[in-house]
Structures are given as C-alpha cells and as structure tokens.
Amino acid sequence: MGEPLLEVRGLTKSFGGLIATDRMDLDVTEGETHAVIGPNGAGKTTLLSQLSGDLRPDAGLIRFVGEDITHLGAPARSMRGLARSFQITSIFKDFTALDNVALAVQAHAGSSFRFWRPARRERALREPALEVLRTVGLAERSELMAANLAHGEQRQLEIAMALATRPRMLLLDEPVAGMGLDESQRMIRFLQSLKGRQTILLVEHDMDAVFALADRISVMVYGRIIASGRPEEVRVNPEVRQAYLGEDTLL
C-alpha cells in the first residue's frame, strides 16, 4: 500500500471555547470505505466541512493526492477530485433532477464562460448526467423538479451529483439520515456497489450502515480520534465502549 489518498495532520478548529476538532490525525487509503463515527457533538460534520473546504481550520494540514490543500476553497477541492454530500440535503430544488446532475458535469467539463449555446441541449452534459442518474436508479425521475422528489430520492440525487464530478474521493455526511428502512437499505446497497471502485469517507450515525459498509472505522469523541481500525477491532475496544456508554448499545 502506497501513500494515503487523504492525510490529515494536527487538524484543529474551535468555535469560541468549544474545540470541535482537536489536533486530529486521519488517513484514508485509496479504495477503502472509511467511516468516522462518534456520539452527537463529537465534531464529525465540522471535520467533513474542513475536508471539503467549506470551513477553514485554525491549524493543521490536509493533504490530498500528495498536495497540500489546507488553504483551498471548496470549488478548488472539487476540481481536484473531492466531492461531498451534505447532512441536510443540498440540491438545486427549482431545477430538474437531470439539470442538477448536468450542472455537476458542467462544472468539470471545461469553461462555463459560454454565453450562447443552450446548456440543456449540450449532449456532452446531458448524456453523462443521465448515465449517472441511471446508476443511482433515478433515470425515470430525471425530468421531475428536484423539489418534488421524495426525501430518499433527493439524497440519491445528491450522491449522483457528487459522482458526476468523477471524484477520487467521496465525502458523505450521514447518507442514510432521515430515511425509512427501505430507502436506507437501498442506499446502503448502492454504496456497497461502489466499494472498491470509489474511495469513501463516511460520517454516519446509523450503525447498521457503518458495519455494512466500512472497511475501517475511526471513532471520534470531543474532536479527537480515540480509536481506529477494522470494524471487529473497534467493536470490542474498551475506550469506545466507554465513550458510547449511555448513548446507545448498538456497539
């Protein structure tokens, strides 16, 4: 195994007195599905936002494909192959599902300073977009307004947008949050189908999803990783059991 695809060193972020990320180290290897779990308020979303460039860390280093990206904004990181989904579904609601994905394709298909040709008639944008919608199972819903999709479909659409940027790594913030049992099973199956082909960093609350998907698990408590390893190692780790005591007994 070579260098990790994503390397985090000494990452620190605080909000006033609250230290959300505390000198954190994390490695994600190419091809693995890595889950970050932790109790509520452990700082998981804050971590993801720093990785995606939506939030500036106070200190520390983020290296992606060997390049220091600590000071790059979200668009530049997307260009380098990092794609994120949000905990609270974030889509272009007043566009069709196909438009949403075509926009993601467009952002990675040359200059958008083009003023004349209708973008909705560019096959180079529409066809790859439809192809991605097909893989997530939304092809029949492509002409629907994104706002009119069911919650689970909107989450699928978000993943489709991320995939349409042809990322080297997916950052997923609770992809099955708020889903019914059927929907979440479908999403888990879909993410399983990506395994091996796609490097994924997953922040998740749902332990069924985590154990179904993760090759490695890092446990985050109060902004720090207290344990990291294969699922069966983490499951029996006494520190982890301690941290989760009283929250739930899923572990």
Binding site: D54, A74, F86, F95, L103, S112, E122
Partner: peptide, 19 residues
C-alpha cells in the same frame, strides 16, 4: 447557456454550486 446555468444554480443554492 452554460453561463446562465451557473448564476441560476448559485442563486438556487450557492454552497451546493461551490461543492
């Protein structure tokens, strides 16, 4: 055109457009 789609997307959801 592509240009218009970008500003419309940004109006609709700027964080998403950046992401």
């Amino acid at each position: 055109a592509r240009f218009g789609m970008v500003i419309r997307a940004a109006r609709s959801n700027e964080p998403r457009a950046r992401a």
